[in-house]
Design a binder for these strands. Structure first.
Lengths: 283, 283
DNA sequence: ACTAGAAATGAAATAAAACTACAAAAAAAT
DNA sequence: ATTTTTTTGTAGTTTTATTTCATTTCTAGT
């Protein structure tokens, strides 16, 4: 956990003098990591051993070790500011907050991911006869994005953000078809029904959704992103970014699995769209 | 710059003994930051002053300061591993790499952003009669995403990923209309022409694209993301994520500018889609 | 209100770590 | 081959961190 946040949280468990140390550090973490123990003690108006004890109370080996931890948490992009946007935030504030909370979110998603499941998903995708990406609402743009990526592999792939089309597509499914369903909550009724329909027609259903959701239960393989819901206050933001990065991961896994021959294919697609571009001038 | 990468880059500028130190650190950075200078000297099989000199050569004040820098760069998500995926990476490796390079990319984008321009863009958007989002290829999903967000504000907003529709839409533009063009490279010919057309019809053109590109030159306001191109090897990945986060930022700015009344609107939209969901069971 | 006990704090001493000066060794240049 | 320069390590010095222990400050029970 972030050292700075840890200090903040435990503020009231410290003794009077230790609290002084905590406040001195919170007031200027940058100063703290560049000070000697003597210097920090002077700033906090306590003795050196007090600083040392303070460090140990935070489960570090001593002052230098504490500085290391603190330095790391400072580097971790996300400062200890509250990540949620306030009404009175200016452009500078909300821009940083959104970028930082997105990064924090990706980090959480990364740590919560099951690599074995990803590997299995890549397995399934590489062996698919046909791949379809379905999403509704905010997730439809994620599905589109996936289409755009897999399209380049020159394999049968489609994408629908319309329930009727999704259902029709499922009815025509056969074994070997893979359906990728994208939903943040996993509680969108029509999509759960689509999953059911797809499975009845022997398709393999991969869901990018919340664990233990109705959609997850209807799927053959669930890739869940442990993204805290409260980051998306008014609309899906960070969670959807995490889904997109997950798509990137699957695409990459797919590319690697297919080997070198396939990568040439990608280069050809890139070369193909080159004509419609302005060349970069050498300067 | 990342300390570990710095060491790697300068490997050949070091002397024989200093190189030993560098290699010892690269071999196990975690050990390095938890060692004393004496310990590290022993591991690298050199003397203590050599380690000290090594640290100074890397523009740090000394060994403790060096450790701080190193600790920070280790914390920075992106470990010193080459961020680009290798052929022989396993699922674990490429998953981490993609998440980490995306985070690094967002961080770079954040730092390279001009807050004043964002503020102006929000200004323009809030005062628009009509907003259109245009993107082609990979950028079309970004445009869709933007549509999905702005749609919730209950204002006239559209999105086209088809050149013909985009041109038609531009011809009908009037003053007060805002066109948001999305393109990673800013070199997609049709989109540059669309920008031209839009301006001829008195629309205000905002471009989410590379600085100094043909598209940027045709736009009234450019929001450029200083994302290194080499992160997107085979297809747009990180750069497109950065664009999406930028859309999130604009949306947030928009919401805040419009004030509390508008946020009720968002709640209503959320409530409206509630019926189509499975309720979360309390457990 | 007073006092025994516990907890917190800091002064001083000790230990550890980092740094400096200088000399020896190695490498490069003449 | 010899001088010069660069590199490296030894030993000593300084700085920094930690431990010990005495003092102070709380806390709670009478």
């Amino acid at each position: 956990m972030n050292t700075l946040e840890l200090i903040k949280k435990n503020l009231d468990t410290f003794s009077k003098s230790e609290r002084k140390v905590a406040e001195a550090i919170l007031a200027s973490p940058q100063t703290a990591i560049h000070s000697s123990i003597a210097n920090l003690a002077k700033i906090a108006e306590v003795s050196e051993p007090t600083v040392n004890r303070f460090c140990r109370r935070l489960d570090t080996k001593g002052f230098p070790d504490f500085k290391l931890h603190l330095a790391q948490s400072l580097a971790n992009g996300t400062p200890y500011v509250n990540r949620n946007v306030n009404e009175d935030d200016g452009p500078e504030a909300y821009t940083s907050k959104i970028f930082e909370s997105t990064m924090a979110c990706l980090n959480a998603a990364k740590n919560g991911l099951d690599v074995n499941l990803i590997n299995r998903a890549v397995d399934v995708l590489t062996q698919a006869n046909k791949i379809s990406f379905f999403g509704l609402g905010a997730s439809s743009s994620v599905a589109h994005d996936a289409l755009n990526k897999f399209f380049r592999f020159n394999i049968p792939v489609s994408c629908f953000d319309d329930v009727v089309m999704q259902r029709m597509s499922c009815i025509n499914c056969t074994e070997g078809d893979v359906i990728v369903l994208i939903s943040h909550t996993g509680r969108t009724k029509p999509l759960v029904e689509v999953a059911q329909l797809a499975r009845e027609n022997d398709a393999f259903v991969i869901a990018l959704t919340a664990a233990n959701s109705p959609l997850a239960e209807q799927s053959n393989l669930v890739l869940s992103l442990g993204v805290p819901e409260d980051t998306d206050i008014y609309m899906p933001m960070s969670s959807r970014i995490a889904q997109l990065v997950l798509i990137d991961v699957l695409t990459t896994g797919f590319t690697l699995r297919r080997g070198a021959k396939f990568r040439d294919n990608l280069k050809r697609v890139k070369a193909g769209i080159k004509d419609s571009r302005f060349e970069k001038t050498e300067d």
